[in-house]
Structure formats: structure tokens, C-alpha cells
Amino acid sequence: MRDLKEEILQTSLDLFDLHGFHGVSVNQIVEASGTSKGGFYHHFQSKDELLFVIHDTFITYVFKEAQAANVHHSSPTQKIQAIIHSFVQVFDLYKPHISVFYQESTYLKPAYKAQIKQKRDEFKNMIFLVIKEGQESGEFRRELPVEITGMAVLGMVNWIYKWYKRDGAYTIDQIAEVFTDLTLHFLLPSSKSPASMEDLLHVPFFYDNK
């Protein structure tokens, strides 16, 4: 059974998805979640803080997973594999959070936007550091600019929220495997590539995931 904070959060996600951030009042959230205003304000100072928590939930998860990968794995190749896998997984685990955030993030107050930017930058910099570590150790191609390569990974994975469907033809694990394979193909020297280009061409195309 969900606790009250989680109940308010999940109810808000449903309401924001249907009506938009400004189309939902605290009173509506309170009524739909079966609580009181006192119960709401015990856990959230405002709707703005609630929207911040929606984002913070999934960015904190993916950042902690990246930190764990950095600690538990010794090689940059293993680290980037684990980071990408958990990063892709977040679009399934927190799909409603991510959808609401991208639709409604423009309404966040500057103080909350600053906190979100800080966490996103920390995650981005961790990816940059793993790529740089791989280049310095000789595991990754040294000619690739770290910033461009890191942003390519971030952009590729972030776009999942636009097309991924839980009832689609491919599971989130299958998608994670393909994204990891693609990343290793452009990071690793050709002699260390995990599969041949011919094999890669036989991977099913899943963009129209219906």
C-alpha cells in the first residue's frame, strides 16, 4: 500500500497528464488522492515543489545508478554499459514522471530550475569523466571530443521519452541492449568492437514502436 506522499505524487501525475500543470488545483489533488490540505502541505510546500519532486525522483535514481556503476566496475567499458542500461531503464520505471516533467517544466520557479540543472550537470559530467577515463586508458577512441560524444549519448537516450511505449514490440531491456551496443561501436576502436557491422545491420529497427 502506498504511503500518503506517494499517493499524492501518483495522483498528481495522473491529473497533470490529463489537464496540464495549470489545469489542476491543490484542491483537486487533495480530493482525488483522498487526503486533506493539511496532508498535502505536510509533504509539499506548493504545487511547484511537487513538480520539482517529480523530476528529482527520476534524476536522483539515474544519478545514483551512475555513481554505483562508477564504484562497482573497474573498466570504463563496463561503467558506460551500466550507466546507459540504467539510464534507458528510467524511461520505463518513471515514464509518467518524465512525461509530465517535459510537458510542464517551463512552469518551474527559478530556484527549482537551478537545483534541477545542478543534478543534470552532475550526471552529464559523470558521463564525460567515464569517456575521458576510457580515452586515457586506451579503451575508447581518443580522437572523439569528450563533450560532443557525451552529449550524443545523452541526446540519443533522452529521446526515448518521445516514442517508447510499454506495450510496444520491444522491451526496455532490449532497447537498452541496442543502445549500449551502438554506444560501444562508436566508442571502442574497431578491433575491440563487440560485434561486426554486418551483425549490427541485422538488429531490428524499432523506431516505430507501436
Rank of each mutant, 00 (worst) to 15 (best):
Q67F: 09
Q67H: 12
A68R: 15
V71P: 10
V71L: 11
H72P: 06
H72K: 15
S74C: 09
S75R: 12
S75A: 09
Q78F: 02
Q78A: 13
K79G: 06
I80F: 05
A82N: 08
I83R: 04
I83M: 13
I83G: 02
H85N: 11
S86F: 02
S86T: 04
S86I: 02
V88A: 00
V90G: 01
D92H: 08
L93S: 03
L93P: 01
K95W: 01
K95Y: 02
P96Q: 01
H97M: 00
S99G: 02
S99M: 05
F101D: 00
Y102A: 00
Q103V: 02
T106L: 10
T106Y: 11
Y107A: 03
Y107E: 02
Y107R: 02
K109H: 14
K109P: 07
A111W: 08
A111S: 13
A111I: 15
A111F: 09
Y112A: 12
K113F: 12
K113T: 13
A114N: 12
Q115R: 13
Q118A: 14
Q118F: 13
K119I: 06
K119T: 06
R120Q: 15
R120V: 14
F123V: 10
K124C: 09
K124N: 10
K124M: 12
M126K: 11
F128D: 03
F128K: 12
L129N: 14
V130Y: 06
I131Q: 01
E133C: 05
E133L: 07
G134Y: 04
S137T: 15
S137Y: 04
G138T: 11
E139H: 10
R141Q: 12
E143Q: 13
V146Q: 04
V146S: 04
E147R: 05
E147S: 11
T149I: 02
T149E: 01
T149L: 01
